[in-house]
Amino acid sequence: MTGEAWFRPKRFGYGATPSNWKGWAFVGLFILVVVAVVAVTIAKGLTAWLTILIILALTGAIIPFIKAKTDGEWRWRWH
C-alpha cells in the first residue's frame, strides 16, 4: 500500500506503533469496535469463547493493513 505511513516499527519487540494521528485514530476506532463487539455478545448472551474468537478474527483482519501502512519492516528488535 502506498502513501503516508500511519505506523512505525516498534523500537523494542515485534510489530508497529502509531506514528501520527491517523494511526492513533485507527487504533482508537479498533478499540471502540472491540468494546462494541463485547457489549453485543454480552447482551445477546453468547459464550465467552465466541467473543474471544470474534476479537481474534478482527485482530487478524487488521494486521495486513497495519503492516502495509508501516514505515519499515516488522522484525524482532531488542537493541
Rank of each mutant, 00 (worst) to 15 (best):
K67P: 11
P9G: 10
V35R: 13
W74Y: 11
L32P: 07
D71N: 10
E4H: 07
V38W: 09
A5H: 04
F26P: 04
A36Q: 03
T47N: 13
A57W: 03
V37P: 02
R77Q: 01
T70W: 01
R77W: 00
L58H: 02
V40G: 00
T51C: 10
K10V: 14
K67F: 15
G45W: 04
W76L: 03
T51Q: 12
I55Q: 03
W74V: 08
F26G: 03
K10L: 05
G23Y: 08
A57M: 04
V27K: 01
L32C: 12
G72Y: 09
L50S: 14
L58T: 05
T41I: 09
V38S: 09
V38F: 12
A68W: 03
N20F: 10
A43F: 06
I52V: 15
L29V: 05
S19Y: 05
I31Q: 13
V40W: 13
R8D: 04
M1Y: 11
W24F: 06
M1S: 13
V40A: 01
H79W: 13
A25D: 01
A16R: 02
K69A: 05
G15Y: 00
K69N: 02
L58V: 06
I66L: 12
T59W: 06
F65C: 12
A61I: 09
Y14W: 09
K44S: 12
F12H: 04
K10Q: 11
T41K: 10
G28Q: 06
L53T: 14
